[in-house]
């Protein structure tokens, strides 16, 4: 399995559905197991919805670059945006053992991403956030 899909998104939440359709086609072409497609869609939604909701302090149009790559048994997901600096690795880890009454609403998206992906690298260069997430593909 070797392949690359590049997608340029607008900063509009409806773009996540378009990306999901493209990711499903890519997954089919690469013969990825259903678990890899599920994880890919989840990670893309969590990261990109975060960017769209929180990265921009203007009302202007922005582009978000996504690259999906399969190389052997590794899936990599790269996301670039020109929003405010934000390192997901520094996001607080939620306490998922709290009783219901004490659970805060929200804050689970990046936790899911960190648990699902094997490695996450963040860098910021020339005003661009660059995130690379990798996972070994296995199972169904």
């Amino acid at each position: 399995m070797n392949g690359v899909l590049d997608v340029v998104l607008k900063n509009d939440l409806s773009e996540i559905q378009r990306l999901s359709v493209l990711a499903e086609t890519f997954s089919g072409e690469q013969a990825l197991p259903s678990s890899a497609l599920f994880d890919m869609n989840l990670v893309l939604e969590e990261i990109i919805s975060n960017v769209i909701k929180y990265a921009y302090n203007d009302d202007g149009a922005h582009q978000i670059m996504v690259r999906l790559r399969v190389h052997g048994d590794e899936l990599s997901i790269e996301v670039e945006d020109d929003g405010l600096p934000f390192n997901p690795l520094e996001a607080p880890t939620p306490d998922i053992t709290q009783p219901l009454e004490e659970r805060p609403i929200g804050g689970l998206g990046l936790h899911l991403v960190k648990k699902i992906m094997d490695t996450i690298q963040y860098s910021r260069t020339n005003g661009i956030n660059h995130l690379v997430m990798r996972k070994r593909i296995s199972g169904q």
Binding site: F38, E45, E46, S49, G106, L108, G109, L112
Partner: peptide
């Protein structure tokens, strides 16, 4: 249902 994200968990 074939998918849920943190938005659904919320």
């Amino acid at each position: 249902a074939d998918y849920i994200s943190s938005s659904g968990l919320r």
